[in-house]
Design a protein around this nucleic acid. Structure first.
Lengths: 229, 229
DNA sequence: TAGTGGTCTAGACCACTGA
DNA sequence: CAGTGGTCTAGACCACTAC
């Protein structure tokens, strides 16, 4: 039976978790490990590279590989698509367009989308419901310079996110998580008191240095975004 | 000049971003791509495997590789260590222990830490300051069954997180992000009004199915957690 | 400057799964 | 059952960097 890189990886992880390999300690080099596992160096390399990608160990040429003192454990979040999110709860998804406007880009937005003063942007406000109950409020700005078709698109039946993913790819994105206080309109749409603490995701996406869209996704009160790692 | 897997990856990404490879479309197989790039199949494989890991493309044996319709773009967050976070802002870090108690595990916590009724837990409340201004409030519960030394540890000078990472590894974790309203004590510690919306991270960590600790990290008002991908 | 990881190659066998 | 990706090997050369 040949030794798989998964075996090597699992064994190393196990040694770390059980304390056989202490944080900060120097691990054997690839050549030695390959010999002791009875496999090729490339196999050990693959295992250790994945551990390094996951932030468990730290590799430096010449200096060797060490177990990280404070593992930079990373969590991966699938960027949620609200329809899937709601259906995964076993609830029925419903969408509604609340508002649509084409207007000159506001000052606060100009820099973030990289636009010139006076250029038009499309502003959409939508609601997403789970079993008829407000679930998420979507406030979106789209740059028509990059996606001209968007001005002709009809968002009364389905949301702009679904339209955008089928229309245009993106190459970069920035995402932020934060807490906001429900102001007037938000509270009304989400069915909570004014001033309630709401969880919000804000995301900007670019295609080759040109901003496509900025969206604020605000969840109903009490929402949690969870992941295991 | 040999062709590197990064070149292949960058070229494929570029083709996707520019629309030459449409979402849903079938890509050539590894053998053909290797020939057209003039490199080994392993090189193409590495490039495509990374794209698949990142959720850009979807691979199935026999069926081939396709560009994802709705890219499951994933964001990776480095689990923040508050000291680093503050120092990265160029601010001076200060820590303070606010409260320490050993008490029978409360009902709401029992299930989450997998404890029996009546067992003791260590409860710590700490504050982290940036340039003397409240930055993060830490409310932590530690299971002394798993880390007995913790009852003898001194947390007046440095925080429990730094102690824990040097004392015990963990194998699994669950992390949640949410918004909470500042209740009385929290508002006072963080220097905000009662009822302010605050961003909170809640994390539970386990070592081999035994819960080590549950911590709630609540940030000062207006905090954002941001990442690019 | 020597040791370590980073990567590429050419070839091979295997596992999965769609047609 | 045949095509595709998944992985391993043995060897090689290279890039970085601690010493």
């Amino acid at each position: 039976m040949t030794v798989a890189f998964k075996d090597v990886k699992a064994d190393l992880l196990d040694q770390i978790a059980r304390g056989a390999l202490r944080p900060g300690s120097l691990m054997p080099n690839e050549t030695d490990l390959a010999e002791s596992y009875g496999c090729a160096r490339a196999t050990v390399n693959r295992a250790m590279r994945e551990l390094a990608d996951e932030g468990i160990i730290e590799r430096k040429r010449k200096a060797g590989t060490r177990v990280r003192m404070a593992p930079i454990r990373q969590a991966r979040f699938a960027i949620p698509i609200v329809r899937d999110e709601i259906e995964a709860l076993g609830a029925k998804y419903r969408y509604a367009l609340v508002g649509r406007d084409v207007l000159p880009v506001p000052d606060w937005l100009r820099g973030r989308l990289g636009l010139q003063r006076g250029q038009d942007v499309l502003h959409l406000v939508c609601m997403h419901y789970a079993d008829g109950v407000p679930y998420q409020h979507e406030d979106r700005w789209i740059n028509p310079e990059v996606v001209p078709n968007v001005l002709k698109a009809d968002f009364t039946a389905s949301g702009p996110n679904e339209w955008l993913v089928s229309e245009i790819p993106f190459s970069d994105a920035e995402i932020s998580f934060m807490a906001v206080e429900a102001e007037n309109g938000l509270a009304e749409h989400l069915g909570c008191g004014e001033g309630a603490a709401l969880f919000r995701i804000e995301r900007t996406t670019w295609l080759q240095d040109r901003a496509i869209t900025l969206v604020q996704l605000t969840y109903r009160r009490g929402h949690r975004m969870t992941t295991r790692y």
